[in-house]
Simulated scan of single mutants.
Amino acid sequence: MPFVEPGGYSRGELDRVGNRIREGVAGSEDLRILDNWRASHLYVLNTFQASLRTRRSRFDVGEQITIAQRLKRRPTIIDKLNREAGMSLSRMHDIAGCRIIFPNLNSLDRFRTSVLNSRAAHELLGDQNRYNYIVSPKPSGYRGIHDVYKYNVGSTGGVRWNGLRLEIQYRTYIQHAWATAVEISDIVNATRLKFSEANNDITRLFLLCSEILSRYHEGVNGYCGNLAARDLIFEYKNIESRIHAISRLRGLTSSAFQKFARSSKLFILVNYTSTEKEGHFEAESFPDNASAAVRYSELELRLEGIADVVLVGSSQQDAIKLAYTNYFSDASGFISALDQAVEGLS
């Protein structure tokens, strides 16, 4: 299976490309370097996912652990460069990401501990709790754990990718349902809650939702642990009765989610957001990483401003639908879990 190699430019050159993108003066060569840099992460992504799948196979039979991968969208990379003034392109650690979703906190903890204790030479950047948003939930209500690794091998075939970074994202199904609902809500309610740029009401509403889900389904307090259950539910219902943000997600089940069939391990998902094709969904499958990377850049350029385009992959049946439900505009799992929790805590 062919993989794209880093193009031979220095980290300094790469960061200068990032600066020109941030300043709005990037040329076609800058974007070519950006696309090559992103595509080169597919090798690291493939290596990590294969290792994680092997580790999952050694866990108890019946453990419902979902593993998927994604390569960051070009618009999202550019947006991150613009949002974070100190961010350099060479240090952006989530261009490549593996997402692992677990049935419960115990399963997540056991699996992550086994990864942390592995003898692989890849370097964990920072201490083990640097991005632990389960122990310390974000003020937005986000819960999950992100571990960042720097790829490091001694094999002749792999040394060309040494130094590239990858993020492993750990979530329970409940944490994942909340996080994807936030992304869907940003589209439906025209906000940027994911980036902490939404108005106070919807920000507070989703924070309360996170707390409700955490307490009922996982038995732990989140960011709002000081609130009594009665006050928590009262405030949630009061805000929702005014802004109806959750109501807009009810029944939002894309037909594409139901029809999406697995026939490959690598897909480009296209979700049209404007023009006469708004709401239309397409998926293309690919036999290898190199052809997928070329097509990814091509579609992003052609569909800029009218569609969300993302390159994802997994070896599991239905894993892409579960791991990336936000691209299918499906919030049913979140709504079901939230309704159950609200009733249980009332």
Rank of each mutant, 00 (worst) to 15 (best):
N162S: 08
I101E: 01
S185L: 13
I202S: 11
I100V: 15
N199D: 15
F206R: 02
F234V: 09
S136C: 09
N221S: 15
K138Q: 13
R110Q: 08
P137N: 06
F206N: 02
G97P: 03
F102N: 05
F206A: 00
I174N: 03
S185I: 12
N200C: 06
Y151H: 14
R130T: 10
V148Q: 04
I100Q: 08
Q175H: 13
E123A: 03
F195W: 10
L125K: 15
R230T: 10
A177G: 09
L193Y: 01
R204L: 08
L116Q: 11
L213R: 13
I184V: 13
S114C: 05
T156H: 09
R119A: 09
S155G: 15
I101W: 02
S185M: 12
Y133L: 04
V115F: 09
N162A: 07
S107G: 00
R130H: 11
A181Q: 12
D127N: 15
I174G: 04
W161D: 03
S185G: 14
V153G: 04
K138V: 02
W161K: 09
N221T: 08
V148N: 01
R171S: 08
Q128G: 01
E167Y: 06
H176K: 08
Q169T: 03
A190E: 13
T172D: 00
N129P: 00
N104T: 07
A181C: 11
N129G: 11
R112Y: 04
N199P: 14
R130M: 08
I187P: 01
P139A: 11
G97C: 08
K194N: 08
T156D: 09
P139M: 07
A120I: 06
H122Y: 10
N162L: 04
E197L: 11
Q169M: 09
G219W: 02
F195P: 00
S196K: 14
D201F: 10
Q169Y: 09
V115W: 14
A228C: 06
I168Q: 06
F234C: 08
A179N: 02
K194I: 07
Y149L: 01
H146E: 00
R204P: 00
T191M: 00
R160P: 02
S214V: 00
N226H: 15
A228Q: 13
I212V: 14
D201T: 06
N132G: 12
G157E: 12
S155W: 11
Q128C: 01
A229K: 12
H176P: 10
V148A: 03
I212H: 01
D231C: 06
L116W: 01
